[in-house]
Design a protein around this nucleic acid. Structure first.
Lengths: 341, 341
DNA sequence: TTTCGTTGTGAGAACGTTGTCACAACGTTT
DNA sequence: AAACGTTGTGACAACGTTCTCACAACGAAA
């Protein structure tokens, strides 16, 4: 393997000089630089980035831990992250925790051992204590999608309250008054905030979700959405609208409804927090909150860069504005819409 | 930052001994080992993996270059790769080339500079010369989904011919005789093999695709599928079936059809090589070839591990068996199915 | 002329680990 | 009793780079 020293010998200069040419820093005369570049070319020299990282203590690598890499939200976020980091010369180490906190901490530890310059983490619910422990005085961290209460990190995520508000206002406007909710564990921000917001905004209209129409799973999984859907399908009295707090749950619900022949919106109306892949091609397009996933990734990455440069910035939580997209999955129940055509 | 030497001092032993304890190799008495482990604990020592890699010349990292990270096929493949590599202690550097060959080579180079232990590459069409050049005598490479003619690498991909054969046999069986095709550039294996296979197997039945019903795009993009769809929608005489050689193209086609009110399968039948995300929830489920993406990733990763251990294995091409999944997107045109109910 | 800043180059230490070698102590086989 | 293998430990070089320092040459400012 060709090293700096080999190039130096070939070009008749010192290793220091070659280093200066390769990294374009320090003073080098054009004549010598040219000679070095030729030697690099001839020997097909490729810098040993590991040695460089070892010496310079910077790896130009950032670690990303997501809970589920196949989730389109994280996909898009990943893309946003890459768009910002790649032009700056960073590469991404990507790990998927499958929503297992132990794995998540494991990966964070490993990233730290590998001396990544920064970490972007969509936590599956690690405790602030554990995380602070792992990162105490080490690589900067930016959380994404999920706040960890008490952890000293920046965080970029949806304005869940606002998203849910839009959904509720719309549903009320369409005349709905009887609601069910399918959500995930409250230890994850999405579950906690969206569930709370839903009840809070319903309350503004004097509505509430009866306990028997609340499905709070212990994971944002297709399986749980499906299970809830099975139950709803066989219910003697159904809510007029079911709110799914997460795109994966919605998928599950719709699959169950399809299997049981429950028609949306004829039999039940459905709204979803989070868009579904290829949703435009569904038999009924779903009224949903579109999350700015890509932009969230971009903002998180930019924030991480900032923090890598200035360690002592104050920590902040950035809320991204979601968007209401109206489909055909909500039946109009108010008098206006119900007029004969 | 705590180093081996710090731990050694604390435990009253030499750095060598600490290294032996941490890596669990060589002889260490249980008594000393315990003392070292305590020192590690107390000081919160974390091995500097960069230094280790530098010295031992192995990074426990593999690089993955895909053409489009959001494509569900690559998503799944990535997952398969991770399932195999993660238990072995490897982490993945992931890069998306956006189907730009220059970016692809760029990333491969960078991976090489970073001394990854291996590379899995879904090439966007780099020349064998360029790739051989980059990797000459360096990290082992396994190609995925796309063969690069003349490059000295292993490759794992679909048995495209067999997949298309199943599709053609089915279509003929349903009574179809007039076909159109939407495909991608022939410089990419998927485009080349699937297009060729389609014509070859049609020929067995005395059928062929007339030139005016052939759409060979210069990219496997939604846009191109959509453009082709627009044309087909306004055609005075349409094929009875359109074959999309790739899931992304199918998405485009269906979007265009939806916009123009073209009904599948009433107006045109559609078959797709490659499944669509959430396809079960579409207004019409698409008859399609399901690709063993995850398994492909697993096989590629396993092969890479093998090659990392034995440099001199013969190169081989592994073909993965695709699966025909029948949906509702093909209209039965034969007499049997057309009997009145 | 002296002083000083800029430009250009090389010598050599340092980064934190692993691996090789040396050596000592001990138990077992010859 | 000698020879040998196993167990246990430490010293020290090496890995390929960057970084700091030293120094020399030169032109410009004092």
């Amino acid at each position: 393997m060709v090293t700096l020293a080999d190039v130096a010998k070939r070009a008749g200069v010192s290793p220091s000089t070659v280093s200066r040419v390769v990294n374009q820093n320090g003073y080098v005369s054009e004549e010598v630089a040219e000679r070095v570049r030729r030697a690099v070319e001839e020997l097909d020299y490729r810098p040993n980035v590991i040695a460089r990282s070892f010496r310079s203590k910077t790896t130009m690598t950032i670690g990303v831990v997501v809970s589920e890499i196949t989730n389109p939200y994280f996909m898009e976020a990943l893309r946003g992250i890459e768009e910002v980091l790649s032009p700056e010369g960073y590469l991404m180490l990507i790990a998927s925790s499958s929503s297992v906190v132990e794995k998540e901490l494991q990966y964070c530890m490993e990233f730290d051992r590998r001396r990544v310059d920064g970490i972007i983490l969509a936590s599956a619910g690690s405790s602030a204590g554990d995380l602070n422990n792992v990162f105490r005085g080490r690589s900067p961290v930016v959380l994404i999608d999920r706040i960890v209460e008490g952890a000293e990190f920046d965080c970029v995520l949806d304005d869940n309250d606002e998203g849910v508000r839009m959904l509720v206002d719309y549903l009320i406007g369409e005349g709905h008054r009887k609601f069910g909710i399918i959500s995930g564990p409250t230890r994850i921000t999405a579950g906690k905030e969206r569930t709370a917001a839903f009840e809070k905004h319903l309350a503004r209209y004097g509505c509430s979700v009866p306990p028997e129409w609340k499905w709070i799973g212990d994971a944002f999984s297709v399986e749980y959405g499906q299970a809830a859907g099975e139950v709803i399908a066989t219910l003697p009295v159904r809510p007029s609208t079911v709110f799914c707090a997460n795109n994966v749950l919605t998928t599950g619900l719709l699959l169950a409804f399809q299997r049981h022949g429950v028609k949306v919106p004829d039999d039940v109306s459905v709204v979803s927090y989070g868009a579904l892949e290829n949703g435009e091609l569904f038999s009924t397009t779903i009224t949903q909150i579109e999350q700015p996933a890509r932009e969230t990734g971009r903002v998180a990455a930019a924030r991480l860069l900032q923090r890598m440069r200035h360690k002592d910035l104050p920590f902040e939580v950035v809320r991204m504005p979601p968007r209401l997209v109206i489909g055909r999955s909500v039946r109009a129940l108010n008098s206006y819409h119900n007029l004969p055509e």
